[in-house]
Design a protein around this nucleic acid. Structure first.
Length: 416
RNA sequence: GUGAAUGUAGCUCAACUUGGUCAGAGCGCUGGACUGUGGAUCCAGAUGUUGGGGGUUCGAGUCCCCUCAUUCACCCCA
């Protein structure tokens, strides 16, 4: 049978067996967030498109061609959220959660939408686990956020995670750097690939992480942002690096690390797993974002982890171990005892057991086949001659051993 | 948005360069051997508008065109 309706491109169903692993990961995340005192927040999937356009940046690909954007029936321009930071900041301001001198720390787990062509590690609907810490400019927070991220991955069992680190400066020094880059590349424009020629006008920083060899070679001689950081940004970055080093957190400086959203300032970072091309998460500071959304001038920092990507890495590393739970009992019965069987099943369920029952009242043979397929640990067989004495047959489906027991025993005993 | 590959039973895939017993296998499913006790073995059986549409041909999963979908890469990113 061919399905009449199928899912939209780029979205997928997460089936029970896989979802188990999602919940494991989420559980671990919540546990870590608790230890760092982050509180969960949930924002709508749909938002005024404006908040993304303003913060992510009009010239970014996300806004130019990847937003699910449309007008609702009230003629409002709305968007399915392409990322989590702007909504959290919006909620933070709208609910007046800020108090001077206090840091607000949030985490979220939810789905995001970007209208991309699907490929490995990329879907149109994808899920992120992210945090946002608002109200503190100190480098100490940067280090804590990075440390949280690495602890999380570490405690999931991942080794060989590399932390890539950069500073993207602030609007002041980045502008200077940007024009220096533009000047540099403009003199070599004829050697750049078509994409980079485009990037030269739009965002010269992007040329730095072009994959074309000739562009890479040229970019190798390009000026480094480290020579352009202003005093404040430089000092901040130095302190972050020092603190990471003294905390024993290894990192790789990557001056070509360019985050894709305009709101980032100062510290920018990504985490990658060995053997996987994509990064599984990234983040950074965004000290101007709250103000950009109409709030006070308070700083922020956060990161987001791609759930699907993380799971792919965990899968590839053999770290997905949880299995689906199987029923404790399967109730099989002689047909005229259906009602008794139903009631007995309910009693066991009310004691906390997972109980399946045959829905077909078929021959015992096929009921036991059902028991086998349901992967139940034990079968309970209810037969007339025993049932009148409140006894049932308890069969261990693994060993095949069976014994007569009092039915009440199953209710009061803990499952062995 | 650009480029490439793929699209055959529920699942994994055959049927090849050479259009003509080509609509198949394994797994799974149903039933039987086992007459009220699952799994193992053996035997039997069901299932497909070969993604969809059009064309070439006496004849097309097999060739051509269009379309849809999937996968991968680019752009970009989680």
């Amino acid at each position: 049978m061919k399905p009449k309706y199928t899912r939209l491109r780029g979205v997928r169903d997460i089936l029970p067996e896989e979802l188990i692993h999602w919940r494991d990961v989420e559980l671990k995340a919540r546990e870590i967030f608790r230890r760092y005192n982050y509180k969960e927040i949930e924002t709508p999937i749909i938002e005024p498109a404006e908040i993304f356009i303003r913060t992510v940046g009009e010239e970014t690909d996300i806004v130019r061609k990847e937003m699910y954007i449309f007008k609702d029936r009230g003629d409002r321009l709305v968007a399915l959220r392409p990322e989590g930071t702007a909504p959290v900041v919006r909620a933070f301001l709208e609910n007046k959660l800020y108090t001077p001198g206090k840091v607000s720390k949030f985490y979220y787990i939810g789905d995001m939408f970007r209208y991309d062509r699907p490929q490995a590690g990329r879907q149109r609907e994808f899920h992120q686990i992210g945090i946002e810490a608002l109200g503190e400019a100190s480098y100490i927070l940067d280090v804590e956020v990075i440390s949280l991220l690495l602890s999380f991955l570490n405690e999931l069992g991942l080794k060989n995670i590399t932390l890539l680190l950069n500073s993207v400066g602030c609007p002041n020094c980045r502008t200077v750097y940007s024009s220096a880059l533009r000047e540099f590349f403009a003199s070599r424009v004829e050697m750049l690939c078509e994409d980079c020629k485009e990037r030269l006008g739009r965002n010269p920083l992007r040329i730095l992480d072009c994959k074309v060899d000739t562009c890479r070679d040229i970019a190798g001689d390009a000026p480094s942002i480290m020579d352009y950081l202003c005093e404040d940004c430089k000092e901040h970055f130095d302190k972050v690096k020092e603190a990471l080093t003294s905390a024993g957190i290894p990192y790789i400086l990557d001056n070509r690390l360019v985050r894709g959203l305009d709101y980032y300032t100062k510290t920018a970072f990504e985490v990658k797993a060995e053997g996987f091309d994509f990064s599984i998460g990234g983040g950074g500071r965004y000290d101007g974002l709250v103000k950009e959304l109409g709030g006070p001038d308070i700083p922020g920092i956060g990161f987001a982890i791609g759930m699907e990507r993380l799971l792919e890495v965990l899968e590839g590393s053999g770290l997905l171990l949880s299995k689906m739970e199987v029923p404790d009992y399967f109730i099989a019965y002689e047909p005229d005892l259906v009602r008794d069987a139903i009631i007995f099943a309910e009693r066991l369920r009310s004691r906390g057991f997972t109980v399946e029952i045959s829905y077909t009242s078929k021959a015992l043979k096929s009921q036991l086949r059902e028991a086998d397929r349901s992967k139940s640990r034990k079968a309970v067989i209810i037969k007339n001659e025993l049932w009148i004495n409140n006894r049932v047959i308890l069969k261990d489906m693994t060993t095949g051993e069976q014994q007569e027991v009092e039915s009440i025993k199953l209710e009061v005993c803990k499952f062995e």
